[in-house]
Nucleic acid binder design. Structure first.
Lengths: 183, 183
DNA sequence: CGCCTTGTTCAAAAAAAATTGAACAAAATG
DNA sequence: CATTTTGTTCAATTTTTTTTGAACAAGGCG
């Protein structure tokens, strides 16, 4: 989007090489956002989440919801939902901006916090529900029997082992991220 | 494979409490497969992948493609593609079964190998392409300038840091999985 | 060689997921 | 209190992903 949508007054810079139109993203910003869009795909998250987080990450100042809508050219609904999701993960923080009624958001930029938020919000719930079902399975395998009972039990035990080691890994990850400088 | 599925000869056990119909999955098997279907979702993989891997994991003997089709009641195309994917990750191995012209498959059940396959096949490619783009970005940020140049450079440097630590983490994960018993 | 059997490919269909946008609620403004 | 601003919700739509199935290739077999 070129000109500011809310007024018809022309930006004096609109023809200069580097627009200072505040709604226009700089090339570098676009590139960084694209990087995040790709990044979140690995985590199984939708594009809009990557766009929103990326924009906040590469914006010097906190942004309000409608500013995000304008800059990214996506719907208000998407941004609202995306921000809620990111806030739940602790990837985005609500900050107070004096003299403005709107909520403003910034990106949490500490890797450790991001990772922990993702682990808590996305990974752990899955691990826990799997743990429950696995316990049921263990019982089931003990009672019920078939020619393959032994095999089944061995396999179920193995999944339990995987889970246990997965849990240990998450702790190790956490410890590692806590170590080096707080970036 | 026990009896030929295409004949109309009836399985004598078909009315007994526990069917031994070789095409029928046992309840425990279904449950384990469901567990895997859920599991692979976390990794961003489709249901059919979880079904196929789960079936092989919880099957005592190697299975041929058409057996998988029958047991899971999914299309041949899906199974063919799914098996290729799983073989590429090293999660499924081709095994020779004497006297049968068909290919047979088993699940690789060592966590370390599974994790390494996933890292190599799914994570590393993404990390590498991100690395390339990031280097371009660094250059771009150095040349191009704007009031926010310093901020941009700081942020891009930070992403670089994340990536570096991500790479370290993968190595740590690998080391950890190598440690304890080989399960 | 003609006929199976086995497995792959890929366009089309189906299913699943993400996005939109209009209606709504809540709170501030004047 | 009426109006505006801000943000949420959710049914409908769009987009993306997955699955299907029919056509095809490759290779044995008699």
């Amino acid at each position: 989007m070129r000109s500011s949508p809310q007024t018809s007054i022309q930006d004096p810079d609109q023809f200069s090489e580097k627009s200072t139109d505040p709604d226009q993203l700089e090339i570098i910003q676009r590139e960084v956002i694209a990087l995040f869009v790709n990044g979140v795909r690995v985590l199984g998250l939708p594009k809009s989440i990557g766009e929103i987080y990326g924009l906040l990450f590469i914006s010097p100042d906190p942004l309000a919801l409608d500013v995000i809508v304008i800059k990214l050219e996506i719907s208000k609904g998407s941004v609202s939902q995306g921000l809620r999701f990111l806030r739940n993960l602790g990837a985005v923080k609500l900050v107070y901006v004096s003299g403005d009624r709107r909520d403003h958001f910034t990106a949490e930029a500490e890797l450790k916090k991001l990772a922990n938020g993702f682990i808590r919000g996305e990974l752990n719930p899955n691990l826990e529900s799997a743990t429950l079902r696995l316990d049921e399975l263990k019982a089931m395998a003990k009672n019920h029997n078939s020619p393959n009972s032994d095999f089944f039990q061995e396999r179920i035990k193995r999944i339990g082992n995987w889970r246990r080691r997965g849990g240990m890994l998450l702790k190790i990850v956490n410890k590692f991220l806590g170590k080096t400088t707080r970036l």
